[in-house]
């Protein structure tokens, strides 16, 4: 209940509910468990990326390398996940480590060189894409073990594993932001970097952490995507970062930093999922879907700024 209250200052949450109610009236299929399973499964990869970039954006930064990290970690996992080679844990850890490495590189460059995050991650976006192509020699990596494929398609306790992972990550990320010192430092840093430093916060360490978290979550997304499509695609994930950033912005996180929440991001992710799903149900062409999506992104920010003004 406290959480609902917190979300209330996001006008977008009300918009989301209104859309869901409307859709359930228009289409009886909309409110079924199977439809929601589809929606959540579809958004789970975007959700992981969006959680990671929420940390980054709250500090006032940006991460454009997410899509490329998905490709690098996906290919890395696929190459180590052929049947009868390594135990399942090896491709998973290797892919997560690949994501961590690129994320930490982003953080290192941003803090040491003082280059803007936009530029650094634009660079690693291209570097990552190149690395994925080098590792895979430009070809899809297929022939994955059953246990690896099971991650993306199997069920545990009656729930798709993808959804379970999403829920666990949602909880972990929420706890980090709301209950740990790191979370407090992230908000402080985004709110006023100089004052945060003067208050004794190790600004460089916090930045290293957020880009690393973003990288690891993108690595996890890479594993899940590869498992779902049963191949490691070096071209996978292109443009994913923009969907993730869109979800974060729709969810009320300020791109100038200092404000935002994982709960808001989750709403943003679900809103995108629901809109795409319903436009599918209503047989709207995917061309129009893109136009609608763009309008929603802009509309969400306008709504947020109106909210700000009325608060003042």
């Amino acid at each position: 209940m406290r959480y609902i209250n917190k979300l209330r200052h996001y006008g977008i949450f009300i918009v989301f509910l209104a859309i869901c109610i409307n859709l359930s009236l228009i289409s009886p299929q909309f409110l079924t468990i199977s439809n929601w399973t589809i929606i959540i499964t579809q958004v789970s990869i975007n959700a992981l990326l969006a959680f990671g970039v929420t940390f980054v954006i709250i500090t006032g930064g940006i991460d454009l390398s997410l899509g490329s990290i998905v490709a690098v970690s996906g290919v890395t996992a696929a190459m180590l996940a052929h049947p009868n080679t390594y135990p399942l844990i090896v491709p998973i850890l290797a892919a997560l480590f690949a994501g961590l490495l690129i994320g930490a590189f982003n953080g290192f460059m941003i803090t040491k060189s003082k280059i803007a995050p936009f530029i650094v991650t634009l660079g690693t976006m291209t570097i990552g894409r190149g690395l994925a192509l080098i590792l895979s020699d430009g070809r899809p990596v297929s022939n994955l073990s059953d246990s690896f494929v099971f991650i993306g398609s199997g069920k545990l306790l009656g729930l798709p594993i993808l959804i379970l992972i999403l829920v666990i990550m949602f909880i972990i990320c929420s706890v980090i932001l709301n209950k740990t010192t790191l979370g407090r430092y992230i908000y402080a840093l985004g709110g006023n970097e100089q004052a945060a430093r003067a208050s004794g916060i190790m600004v460089t360490r916090v930045k290293m952490m957020v880009y690393s978290i973003s990288g690891v979550l993108a690595g996890l997304a890479g594993i899940l995507l590869t498992s779902r499509i049963t191949t490691g695609q070096p071209n996978a994930g292109a443009g994913f970062e923009l969907d993730a950033i869109a979800a974060v912005v729709i969810g009320g996180t300020s791109t100038s930093g200092g404000k935002g929440s994982i709960g808001g991001t989750m709403i943003g992710v679900l809103l995108i999922g629901v809109i795409n799903n319903s436009l599918d149900l209503l047989n709207v062409s995917s061309y129009y879907q893109q136009v609608v999506m763009g309008l929603i992104i802009i509309g969400a920010v306008v709504l947020d700024s109106l909210n700000q003004k009325s608060n003042y």
Binding site: T181, R184, Y187, A188, G190, G191, N192, Q194, A195, A196, A198, S199, G200, I201, G258, K259
Partner: peptide
């Protein structure tokens, strides 16, 4: 304004910021 406090954080969160650990 520049070095003293974080405007978006609460009074409590600002006061505890330097000793939160």
């Amino acid at each position: 304004k520049g070095l003293g406090f974080i405007p978006e954080l609460s009074v409590k969160q600002n006061i505890s910021l330097s000793s939160i650990s």
